[in-house]
C-alpha cells in the first residue's frame, strides 16, 4: 500500500508548480492554466484523505466533484474575461492590462 504522505507530497509539489506559474507567467491564459494545476493538486488531497481516512463515506468524493465544478466554472468565466480583454485591449499579457494602476 502506498503511504498517505506520498500523495500529499505529490499534491504539494503540483501546487507549488502551479503557484510558480500563476505568479511568473505574463500571459493571462498561462496563469489560468497554472491555477488549474493548483486546483488539481487540491483534488488529489481531497481524494487521498477520502481513500485513507473514510473510504466508506463518500463526502470526500462529493467535495472533489464540487471542486471540479467550481474549477470548470472558473475556467469558463476566466477565459471569457481573457477574450473580452483581448478584444478591447488587443493583448492578453497581464503586464499590459494596467488600467487600474494609478
Amino acid at each position: 500500500m502506498i503511504p498517505l504522505s506520498w500523495y500529499l507530497i505529490v499534491a504539494a509539489l503540483l501546487f507549488v508548480i502551479g503557484f510558480y506559474g500563476a505568479l511568473s507567467r505574463r500571459n493571462a491564459i498561462a496563469i489560468l492554466m497554472s491555477i488549474e494545476l493548483m486546483l488539481n493538486a487540491v483534488n488529489i488531497n481531497f481524494l487521498a484523505f477520502w481513500r485513507y481516512l473514510t473510504p466508506e463515506d463518500m463526502a470526500g468524493q462529493v467535495f472533489a466533484i464540487i471542486a471540479i465544478t467550481v474549477a470548470a466554472a472558473e475556467a469558463a468565466v476566466g477565459l471569457a474575461l481573457v477574450i473580452a480583454i483581448y478584444r478591447s485591449r488587443d493583448t492578453v499579457s497581464v503586464d499590459e492590462v494596467d488600467l487600474l494602476k494609478g
Partner: peptide, 24 residues
C-alpha cells in the same frame, strides 16, 4: 477545459503573437 483553453489561445494572439519573454 483543455478544449476551452486551446480555443482561447487560438482566439487571442497568444499562439502566434510577437515573441516576448513568457515570464515576467
Amino acid at each position: 477545459v483543455s478544449i476551452l483553453i486551446i480555443f482561447a489561445i487560438m482566439l487571442s494572439r497568444g499562439m502566434m503573437g510577437k515573441r516576448t519573454s513568457s515570464h515576467n
